[in-house]
Design a protein around this nucleic acid. Sequence first.
DNA 1: GAATTGACATTGA
DNA 2: TTCAATGCCAATT
Length: 113
Amino acid sequence: MTEKPEKRNFFQDVYEVVEQIPAGRVTSYGAIASYLGSKGSARMVGWALIASHPAIKIPAHRVVNRIGMLTGSQHFDSPNAMQERLEQEGVKVENNQVVDFQKLFWDPAKELL
DNA sequence: GAATTGACATTGA
DNA sequence: TTCAATGCCAATT
């Protein structure tokens, strides 16, 4: 019979993790991917957020790339929506880039555990 | 059904 | 050190 790889829950897993990101914190795609076990599949995390965009409500604005740049903001309703949202959470954003990103970094593999 | 793209990360030179 | 190329898995065309 056809196989059923549990990895199909990859998207669901991403939603679970992102949804548990505390306000005022940010994380990176690689951190989530690493937590899921697929370190090299950081891109899939981004895909998951796109798929969840109109359907599932998750703080995708708290997820940025490893340099803290809001690369995904272009996929939001407005490119500034994500930046404004982060500032409301207390995260300083400069030029579509998170300030003290390393300080606000939230690692699911350690914080969530 | 095959080829390309994509909200990134890592390694090599 | 910085720049460039490659790899990941899934979805889209």
